[in-house]
Amino acid sequence: MEERYRDALSFLREARSISSLAELEGRFIGLASQFGFDRTSCVLMCEPGRPIQPRVLFGVGDTAYRQQYVRSERFRIDPTFQAVFTRSRAFTWTEIEHLATSDAARDLFSQARRDGSEGLIVPVHGALGEVSAVVLAGREAEVSEQARAVLQACGATFAVSGLQLLELADDRETETGLTRRETQMLVWLSRGKTVPEIASILDVSIGTAKTHLERAKAKLGGQATVPTILEALRRGWLVDPDEFH
């Protein structure tokens, strides 16, 4: 097996245990560079029940350009953006460029490809209808079927792992031993909500909600959920969720 494919397999196996976003970004771009891509970004396209408003979440070498792209609402004329919703497999700029029929849309592709770059877009459709995309770009891009398959799996893993790290990072310690999110998890559980329901309330993925709960359990003696809630109550650590603003 070629070294880059060995690296891809390691990335697939290890990405979810990486605890720093910077390290995850470094590992992913290091892998992508072996396939000729030198910049990448992960963009959250939409979440269920909300207006479409893309957000650039993280990436390497591409985020400033991508943020400008979002701010100037260029996604509204970009067939690439629309294709993320309708396609499930990774696709290239070349494959989508013919759909750019307006001058403004054609100009987008000219700008993106001015240095001879090719782009590979990995659509990421989540469990509850959220849609993201991992955009890869580079001058020496290799987009063979096998390379594309591997980059799709690694890109999707990059998006899922990165989003979870981002959600976990957006959490503050409170005066108790628990973070804000960990406390909120226990409070809502004590009121009979399920983890998927709480994930929806807190606007985080189910995986992140689960991680908050596991961390709370570890801090309160490593017990099951109900004893963990009782222990938090005993310590006076559970406050009304309305207190969280």
């Binding site: 659509p123 469990a127 189910i206």
Partner: peptide, 14 residues
């Protein structure tokens, strides 16, 4: 699985 199922399998499938 088909590759497009990987994200919901990794996060949200339980």
């Amino acid at each position: 699985i088909d590759i497009e199922m990987l994200p919901p399998m990794l996060n949200g499938s339980g």
